[in-house]
Design a binder for these strands. Sequence first.
DNA 1: AAAGTACGCAACCGCCCCCTT
DNA 2: GAAGGGGGCGGTTGCGTACTT
Length: 369
Amino acid sequence: MGRSPCCNENGLKKGPWTPEEDQKLVDYIQKHGHGRWRTLPKLAGLKRCGKSCRLRWANYLKPDIKRGKFSEEEQQIIINLHAVLGNKWSVIASHLPGRTDNEIKNFWNTHLKKKLLQMGIDPVTHRRRTHHDLINVLSNLPQRLAAANLANLSTYPNWDNAFRRQYSDATQFAKIQLLHNILIQLRMSTAPTSYRETINHFGSSSIPDHHQYLNEFQQMNSKLEALENASNIGFPPQITAQMQPNLPNYEIHDQQPQSSSVNVQPVNGLEIYMSNNSDCDDHLQLAEEYYSIPPSNDMHRYPNSLVSASPECCSIISQIENKLNSNDISNCLPSSSTSTTFEPLGDIMEDEASDSYWKDLIDKYVASL
DNA sequence: AAAGTACGCAACCGCCCCCTT
DNA sequence: GAAGGGGGCGGTTGCGTACTT
């Protein structure tokens, strides 16, 4: 069928609107309403196409439009709705009084997208970018290992100590990132971060003791936090700036379901939805209401989707876990200001002195993905 | 101080859906 | 049911401004 553009007539103005044009449009609409947009410009004395008038009115001149910065609450609403709806800007705008779809779309593209990326969250799927991070780390690891090995050779006497240490730290950091990413996978494969996933995780027939479950989850988070904190202390700034964005951040929260029977329990920045009553059908119904769209339609858009680990992967994760359990990471703080950055993690990293251990581990882990 | 670059946002473009004829 | 028009929507562009070199 097709249609001719509404702005193909000669003499029609394009580009930024002048205050005089704005005034004409406002005056006309306040007096007569907009009626048919195509006929409006002529009646209002504007040399614009109807579409341009509609957009100018809808996005800028309408009296109830809210200008200015988006509040934290508004930002959270946009993120949550985008996780469920995708780029349905007009629907998202309908939940934010005074905000236009265009404004929200621009704000998403210029601010929120970057914010989520910095948090290690994919802005399209709203999943944590565990696998991508891991692949990035793995793709750089051989170079880092090679560089570190070179730095250790006495055949390069001109390399100063800071330079050697930087490369040595980079190697250690790569290893820690690997450990970190594997642990995140472990956390995501065993710890649901939303109410739906709680149900999915335990099945609809029985839900074990929530407190015990939360305790386990908290312990895992504590370990990860300690690991992150330890790896950040004293790290050379030129490397930190480059690599820090790869470290996921857990500040994002799901929106609290509108029900008094559901508690939100913050766990190290994550919020887990747990119900007080033990009726699984009610739980599921609440979850369905909260997410509003059946999961089979578009599962990938749900926030905090469950990432499951394969049995092989779990086995490797267990090895790492055993290692972590045999070392008290919470005490891993630098013993002095002159210590090497990753000395505190030495107990974990150095008892397997050879890089072949890590190579094997990486190979197995990649194969299990 | 000037040139180059990045960023933010208003406006435009083209496609699509829905309603009317 | 098909054709055509009106309006809405999401993606993209381009300009003005801020920031960096």
